[in-house]
Nucleic acid binder design. Structure first.
Lengths: 337, 337
DNA sequence: CTGAAAGCGCTTACAG
DNA sequence: CTGAAAGCGCTTACAG
């Protein structure tokens, strides 16, 4: 009776119906716990289905119901930047968090690493999407609109369908902390991608410089290169501006490279130079000395993003709406803590 | 003429056929570049489809063709271990690599973070799967078998459908390197999950101890806890075995914790104690001093895993089969490099 | 409480 | 070169 795998024909709802002496309708109702079915009939159907090892076809369910119970995580960053060392931790931490949250609501997560060549959207059967740090006039956002795929953004332009990453608040937190820790001439090193995060840090930095009366010193580094780009940018800054006594470097990979440049220049953290980064991830914790950073509550961010998207899809969450807490400073040795 | 989004009815192949004055068959053939269609007809169909913004329904295609062009990355680790700090980098590095490779062949990747509660397989419409480090008699492997889902394993039991992670070779590489770097009494700290990786390191360590005539000293730490577990295990080992002059710690998170324990014990790396870990990831590179590690060629591993799975699915790769290179030692300051 | 029938939107033999 | 029809495997009004 054992079917050869090559000959293996799928067990369908019709097979179960035939075997149970009932109609597909009743089988469907029984298995899905809907409609009015005699309890004994229902149990009988379940027994037969189990005996035949019946597994409903997700494909057919999706076509018929019009829902796929799948969502995608998309990023519009150029592939080199997004999968580059400097952002991998950020992206994947959100991805894992979202995959977990989604699953708890019966949704699976598709991963669409940014590929410059092919278009993942044409291959994906999804009900909605989460778009990470979209640019203004983002091409992926446009295509989602064209396809009428509902989506929320994370770290995008403010709005009801955006989950704020609170970059400005994080920037203020770090800059104030540096100044309170004794910095008089803090410098800034940014990535070149021009996303909201970088823009916000830039703005807040300039505003703080003006308010506190120190001359702004800003350098840019290429995000796709990683630590070495950060090292070079920091080396340049140290050479040209020996008066700097602190560096705010939102991208942790750059901060780790800068640490080396500072060391190479014969200066020490935190004695001669304070250093702070944004994302409190593996890097910030592992660096020597460990880096002062900001807890952005990425787990809460993924939770909120998924929850808001599901709400948009009509899956009114029975669970209470979650809020993303205000970013919290994590003071470490790199700023004298 | 603009459709309200709430009223928005999907444009189907029938709509295109009607508008073009042709049959669905011809539209399908034209758009998919198959069959015998008059070139002008074909172009006309394409024009009409573009004008109507027709997007084929992936759902319907999947049901009809029996293929979903989707694969899943599964892990059977308990959730706490697999998403725990100590393995996150490993899992996500493979995931991103696979997602990219798959996309190049027209496949999308579903992420199934290990959830103890729900069963992602029932929700996923996939043609095949990649199972990460399965245990013997792995429940997920069993369910894949039951559902007749083709799959390859990564770092599982040796066999044609397994992509070897070459743990034994990596272990030998590290142990030989430690001994050559002057270690006389190397100790070992392992995770408690009992996976092939840990078993292999244990075996090779014991064999090396016997061959070289040093007494084996092994400690275990809980993988779901992370760096702190590594620190405690190392602290214990240092206290009980002050004669140890090197530590081999395959899990990088533990190694980073051990670094702190060594420091707290008033000893220095590499002067008083050599230290080496396995995965050459962010941690190994960021630690101070940077850790000697092994390049496992995870990018090649993901490539091979995807390629082998697609071959299994009958997608004979036109691209040449890739091989996973032998693990390569990356000597760093933690062993005196 | 149960069932016959339609239909989700495609692709694929098959006929012309 | 083109088209009518079947069918992938479900769910859902609707009728009884």
């Amino acid at each position: 009776m054992t079917q050869n795998k090559r000959t293996h024909k799928r067990v369908t709802i019709a097979d179960v119906a035939r075997e149970a002496g009932l109609s597909p309708t009743t089988v469907s109702h029984s298995l899905n716990g809907i409609g009015q079915v005699d309890p004994r009939t229902r149990q009988h159907v379940k027994d037969v289905a189990a005996r035949l090892k019946y597994r409903p076809s997700v494909r057919a369910q999706r076509l018929r119901t019009g829902r796929s119970n799948a969502i995608a995580l998309l990023s519009s960053m150029p592939a080199a930047v997004s999968t580059g060392e400097s952002r991998l931790g950020f992206f994947t931490e959100l991805a894992m968090g979202m995959a977990g949250k989604a699953l708890l609501s019966g949704y699976v997560l598709m991963l669409a690493p940014p590929m410059d060549q092919c278009n993942p959207l044409a291959l994906m059967d999804i009900d909605g999407a989460i778009l990470l740090e979209p640019a203004p006039d983002d091409p992926i956002a446009q295509e989602l609109d064209e396809r009428a795929v509902p989506y929320v953004t994370v770290g995008g332009e403010p709005g009801p369908d955006n989950v704020d990453l609170q970059h400005a608040a994080a920037a203020d937190l770090l800059l104030q902390h540096l100044l309170q820790s004794g910095a008089r001439r803090p410098g800034l090193i940014l990535g070149g991608s021009g996303r909201a995060s970088q823009r916000n840090f830039h703005e807040r930095y300039l505003a703080t410089a003006e308010a506190r009366g120190f001359p702004p010193v800003v350098a840019f580094a290429a995000e796709e290169i990683g630590a070495e780009a950060g090292r070079q940018a920091a080396a340049r800054l140290l050479a040209e501006h020996p008066e700097l006594d602190a560096l705010c470097i939102p991208i942790d990979t750059f901060a780790s490279g800068a640490l080396r440049a500072i060391h190479d220049a014969g200066r020490r953290v935190p004695d001669d130079m304070l250093l702070a980064t944004r994302h409190d991830g593996v890097r910030a914790r592992t660096c020597q000395p460990p880096l002062t950073a900001v807890d952005l509550h990425l787990d809460a961010v993924s939770h909120v993003a998924v929850q808001r998207l599901l709400r948009m899809l009509g899956r009114e969450g029975q669970d209470a709406p979650v809020d993303v807490p205000t970013p919290a400073l994590v003071a470490r040795r790199s700023t004298g803590a």
